[in-house]
């Protein structure tokens, strides 16, 4: 019956494709799938990048709703993703940290724009040179300001990252390995032979 239905061009239900009627997956994959598809951003728009972020959220051309993230929650307690959009001044830094702390785990951070990633063009007394001085960042997005498509690309890369995130024991192990690698890594300005 099933092969004939394909030939007739009718859509097949999921249950017909599965060999024995069971779907097998891992908890990690399921958690990753669910987490990435409804990532709720927290509104942390600071400066110019915030306007591009608003365009991503509200302009029909760069609709973020198709990726499940159009609910920009004002309350950090309900948000998963903090998109730091704009320059973080020294006065704003404690506020940023407090909002990050108020977010419930699991939480991710995208540093949107050059100012959030590294201080950008403002290398001076007033701007924190990269929000990774304050919060752990998952994705750095360059641009001044990044185009809305770039922000969507960053969010999609984050989706992939979340999809493949380990949980539980595996996660603790990966964290340990990453930390060890970072401890033994060579500082960037001592990497020789790359400028030639």
């Amino acid at each position: 019956m099933a092969p004939r239905r394909i030939g007739m061009g009718l859509k097949m239900g999921l249950e017909e494709k599965i060999p024995s009627g069971f779907v097998l997956t891992t908890v990690e994959k399921l958690a990753g799938y669910m987490r990435k598809n409804s990532l709720w951003p927290a509104t942390f728009g600071l400066a110019c990048c915030a306007i591009e972020m608003m365009a991503v959220g509200s302009a029909a051309k760069y609709d973020i709703a198709r990726f499940g993230g159009e609910v920009f929650r004002a309350s950090p307690r309900q948000a998963d993703l903090m998109i730091v959009a704009g320059r973080v001044s020294n006065k704003m830094a404690p506020v940023l940290r407090q909002i990050y702390d108020q977010m419930t785990a699991p939480k991710w951070v995208i540093a949107m724009g050059a100012c959030a990633s590294s201080g950008g063009m403002f290398n001076n007394y007033a701007i924190v040179q990269g929000v990774d001085h304050i919060v752990p960042v998952d994705i750095y997005l360059p641009g001044c300001p990044p185009r809305p498509e770039m922000l969507l690309d960053a969010i999609l890369k984050l989706h992939e990252q979340i999809n493949n995130e380990k949980i539980g024991v595996n996660r603790a192990q990966i964290i340990k390995e990453v930390e060890l690698a970072a401890m033994n890594a060579k500082p960037t300005h001592e990497m020789k032979g790359l400028l030639a």
């Binding site: 007394y125 960037t188 400028l195």
Partner: peptide, 24 residues
């Protein structure tokens, strides 16, 4: 008082692979 001429700009060196560049 930051905008006085005797107050430093306060930038930090930018790190590149293999070199650092001083602030403006």
């Amino acid at each position: 008082h930051p905008q006085r001429k005797d107050y430093a700009l306060g930038g930090i060196s930018v790190e590149y692979k293999g070199a650092t560049m001083p602030p403006p």
